[in-house]
């Protein structure tokens, strides 16, 4: 049996709320806003990756550790989903 967990935008937003460089902005972000344009810095993006790994008990493989995987709320949701919901064999 494959463990299934639905990841919602809200889950991602809650995690983003803890990132200092985006503080106070999360409620105003759309799912497709570029987070780097909204002030997410290199340090903040690593803090975000760490917070997501902790929250969803996952580890991002190196090939997903790039700007595109974390550029928007939608992209993050998709990145996290590919790890917690691997395609059935």
């Amino acid at each position: 049996m494959v463990l299934r967990m639905m990841i919602s935008s809200q889950d991602i937003r809650e995690t983003l709320g803890g990132i200092e460089s985006l503080s106070g902005q999360v409620d105003r972000l759309s799912d497709d806003d570029d987070l780097f344009d909204k002030g997410l810095c290199s340090f903040g993006s690593v803090q975000l990756m760490l917070a997501l790994e902790e929250r969803f008990n996952i580890e991002f493989p190196d090939h997903l550790l790039n700007r595109t995987s974390f550029a928007t709320i939608r992209a993050i949701r998709s990145t996290v989903t590919t790890i917690v919901e691997p395609v059935d064999a």
Partner: peptide, 13 residues
């Protein structure tokens, strides 16, 4: 410092 930050999430291998 920048590398130190990136190493917090890099995986080996």
């Amino acid at each position: 410092s920048n590398t130190a930050n990136l190493l917090l999430v890099q995986k080996g291998g």
